[in-house]
Design a protein around this nucleic acid. Structure first.
Lengths: 200, 200
DNA sequence: AACCGCAGAGAACGAGCGTTCTCAGATTCG
DNA sequence: CGAATCTGAGAACGCTCGTTCTCTGCGGTT
């Protein structure tokens, strides 16, 4: 167990599971030590502080999210299919036993206000996801705004499913996405409301 | 300052502001004491524990949300107008200086996992909002599903606007809502006389 | 005036946290 | 073989927090 890389992975994996299940501030470094089997001294030699470990966990979550979502998108046909596959991906995620909402959103609620480093990672993850959806929306023949609208649906589905404990919110998101996509790319005649904005 | 009721209000108001700005676990009882000007002894005579205070703050947030949203809806015309007014309401809220997302969602991320009482209040608030939107959707001539879809947009707008620090997500939500509503109730060419269902 | 009771201010307490230190045992190298 | 170095386990430290306790002084009643 001298392998620096594996030690790091085990610490992050243990912390990730604990943080996601209980919330970051509810999990002490000693719990990470117990779950990972790595001594405190070694943990601190890899991550100088808990904040560094938190950032590493967020990074790992990002990586896993990108990889898993990417796989789901890769097995879908066409840009429209990939957009809808996002919601299928969410649905299967929501159905997992330990689903407790989006780790990034939860972490923002917990420490976004006080830790700028954490807030930055969360903001970046959300921005990247939105950019991905916008790109797919353009590929599907829609506008950037369509992408933003679909992002909202995906975001809302995550918090709604988490709080209500009901995975079916992914289906509502999917249905709404389908309607918006078809409306935008002209499968259905669109009411030309366009930029009518009564606000401000 | 013997008025039990005013004392309670001042404690809750001080705690609410601090909790929302910094997160609950970042705010100690002593900070609530300093901000409210009420002694610790008195605070504990009204709220036997911090958890009780947290629940009271959540209740007050709920009350304020219901009242303010209700006012916005009351000044809108028709069910369709009231549905869209939700997003105008969100937009003005997002623009306030101290906006830091939905207190309920943030609180869920922070203590929903460990405190069942907190989780219950959060779940109830979201369920009630969803029920309201569903009711409006039915009044507008749409389905329950339309209501659920619009809920997702509102929910997503709150987290997206908070994390990105960008109030304009409310506008994307509004535009998507408009499209979904019109698609659902088929007003593409229908005149305003379609209000066979009247409710003034 | 004398007593009683209560309220305010904040010190005190026990627990838990992040972080550091100690120490015993293993390992390595001359 | 022996000495120097490293490592793991966990005790220890300093701090903060939620909660309780103590002490001091004021107000009301007779």
């Amino acid at each position: 167990m001298i392998d620096e890389h594996e030690v790091r992975d085990r610490i992050v994996a243990a912390a990730d599971a604990l943080y996601y299940a209980r919330g970051i501030h509810e999990v002490g470094m000693d719990a990470v030590r117990a779950a990972s089997g790595i001594s405190l001294k070694r943990i601190y030699s890899v991550f100088p502080s808990k904040a560094d470990l938190v950032v590493a966990v967020l990074g790992e979550r990002r990586h896993v999210w990108d990889r898993d979502l990417g796989r789901s998108l890769a097995s879908a046909d066409g840009a429209r299919g990939r957009l809808l596959a996002i919601f299928d991906f969410l649905r299967t995620w929501f159905e997992t036993d330990d689903f407790r909402g989006c780790f990034f959103i939860n972490t923002y609620g917990e420490s976004g206000a006080t830790s700028e480093a954490v807030h930055a990672v969360v903001r970046q993850q959300k921005a990247d996801f939105q950019a991905l959806v916008e790109r797919l929306a353009l590929e599907a023949g829609g506008t950037e705004m369509l992408g933003r609208q679909l992002s909202l649906l995906a975001e809302g589905a995550q918090t709604s499913a988490a709080i209500a404990g009901d995975p079916s919110w992914a289906d509502d998101g999917r249905a709404a996405a389908e309607a918006l996509i078809d409306l935008a790319i002209g499968t259905v005649a669109a009411p030309a409301s366009g930029s009518a904005r009564t606000h401000a």
